[in-house]
Amino acid sequence: MVDFSRVQKELQECNKDINVSGISVNPKSDNLSNLIGTITGPVGTPYEGGTFKIDIDLPGGYPFEPPKMKFATKVWHPNISSQSGAICLDILKDQWSPALTIKTALLSIQALLSAPAPDDPQDAVVAQQYLKDYQTFANTARYWTESFAKTSSAGVEEKVGKLAEMGFPEALVRTTLEAVGGDENLALEKLLSG
């Protein structure tokens, strides 16, 4: 049975300084064992400007057992599965401590976004790309952020539609957009130059 008094308190604490931390936790259903956390992409990384949703599942033994967390938003990151959103982070597994909270776990995930550990990957393809061709990795990650983690800006489909209207083939527009990280103007320049 989840210790709901603690979860309740954690939610209150976390949502107090939501503007400062950029981290919020909200119940998904009314039983408080399914939560949705959101973190912002760290500044200076390919994830900057994105808002990432994280599925939180509290096991019965919480806080003595770690919360189960995975990305609900697609992320291009060596330690996060690009397919399932599973997170490879020690404090969510054997290094969990009951002194940690949902908020500190989310903060750790945010730190993981700015400091990937490709030597201990969750997604081998992404890790390979990170090690061999960082620039491509960064572009892809930016594109994914742009495509999946930004709710306010125009969607990728909209940009593809715009560029396709200019006369470029749609498949080329997609790959170009992905290569430059989703930036419409950069993609246009690249399409024009080559």
């Binding site: 210790d3 603690r6 806080p63 009951p98």
Partner: peptide, 14 residues
């Protein structure tokens, strides 16, 4: 002990 101890348990919040 009294001066340093927290008021609630950090684990269970009791």
């Amino acid at each position: 002990g009294m001066s340093l101890a927290p008021l609630t348990c950090p684990i269970c919040c009791e």
